[in-house]
């Protein structure tokens, strides 16, 4: 075989292409590309606008101490508030979802579902005023108690705030705000736990709680994580409620119950942007970039947690 002949082209298969198929495929592909473009655009805007602040001399940054010391406390404040919110909301939301799906009589369950969804529809500014006017004064005694009894923890070092306008209050308000998101998604996945596996657990002699532990929670775990991350995203980015309650601006501290608190990125941008000029604007955008990266990291972490045991997820 010295001269190899080019293999003859197989006769072109004429597959029928229906217009509806092509339109739908094009529309779907277009949507997919569009969302990527939007994301890339936002990232490009944040980076290009943040560069002047990243390269500026420390003295040019507002407060005059440099970019790191400016953004650091904001990042800390953002994470603190969001983590408290998550710690408050996740167990409560899982409990609510389990109650609605497996414990409550059907009529009560339906009503409760609506009420929880209603919580999600309340604008965040209302939560802010509620936190300021109702919750903060109510929490003042708890602040004092925590300072007295838990003062050995850096979180409760005190001195206790007399107004209740603290990071702790903010975290709890944020927790109430994200509660409906997490519980709605958890409820959805719990109610889809296969009857097949629930009956398998019951037939082995599981009590209702053991059945939930064996067949419902493992099945719903990834949903709970996904819901928590959605909630965390909202808590990280929440602006109004935090801006109303918190008189931020103090440096980095993990003390949750004193009057001096770090602000959060989003509320700091909202409060300062109207008066910012020049490099101050770039600094605020740089802090926005930091928020963007935090959210990205949180979502990737959640993805990784969900995928880690994909074999055992029950999806196969």
């Amino acid at each position: 075989m010295t001269a190899t002949k080019a293999p003859t082209e197989p006769p072109a298969q004429r597959t029928v292409r229906r217009p509806g198929d092509r339109i739908f495929a094009g529309a779907a592909r277009g949507s997919g590309i569009f969302i990527l473009l939007v994301l890339a655009g936002v990232a490009a805007f944040l980076i290009s606008e943040a560069i002047p602040a990243l390269t500026a001399a420390s003295s040019e940054i507002p407060d005059g101490k440099g970019l790191g010391p400016y953004i650091g406390p904001l990042v800390l404040g953002t994470l603190l508030g969001a983590v408290i919110a998550l710690l408050v909301a996740t167990p409560l939301a899982v409990g609510i979802a389990l109650f609605i799906t497996y414990y409550a009589p059907r009529r009560i369950a339906a009503t409760m579902g609506y009420v929880i969804d209603l919580l999600a529809a309340i604008p965040s500014v209302v939560y802010g005023f509620w936190g300021l006017a109702v919750l903060a004064p109510k929490l003042v005694p708890f602040h004092a108690w925590a300072a007295d009894h838990l003062g050995f923890l850096p979180f409760f070092a005190g001195p206790a705030s007399a107004s209740g306008r603290t990071m702790l209050t903010v975290g709890i308000v944020l927790g109430v705000m994200i509660l409906p998101i997490i519980s709605a998604i958890s409820r959805e996945v719990f109610s889809q736990a296969p009857a097949l596996h629930r009956e398998a657990a019951l037939a082995l002699g599981a009590t209702r709680w053991e059945m939930i532990k064996m067949a419902v929670l493992p099945y719903g775990k990834s949903g709970v994580i996904a819901g928590s991350m959605l909630g965390l995203g909202r808590a990280l980015g929440e602006t109004m409620a935090v801006a109303i309650i918190l008189s931020g601006g103090a440096g980095a501290t993990v003390n949750l119950i004193s009057n001096s608190n770090p602000s959060t990125i989003a509320s700091n941008i909202a409060l300062r942007f109207p008066e910012a000029t020049g490099i101050g604007v770039n600094t605020l955008i740089a802090s926005g970039l930091a928020l963007f990266l935090i959210t990205l990291a949180v979502n990737m972490l959640a993805r990784w947690i969900v995928n880690r045991r994909a074999d055992f997820s029950g999806a196969n």
């Binding site: 296969p194 097949l196 596996h197 009956e199 398998a200 657990a201 019951l202 037939a203 082995l204 002699g205 599981a206 064996m214 067949a215 493992p218 099945y219 775990k221 045991r309 055992f312 997820s313 029950g314 196969n316």
Partner: peptide, 18 residues
Amino acid sequence: VRRQIGMVFQRPNPFPTM
């Protein structure tokens, strides 16, 4: 009762997360 009397179902149902 169910701990004394075992049951096997129509469709195989091992716990997928275990």
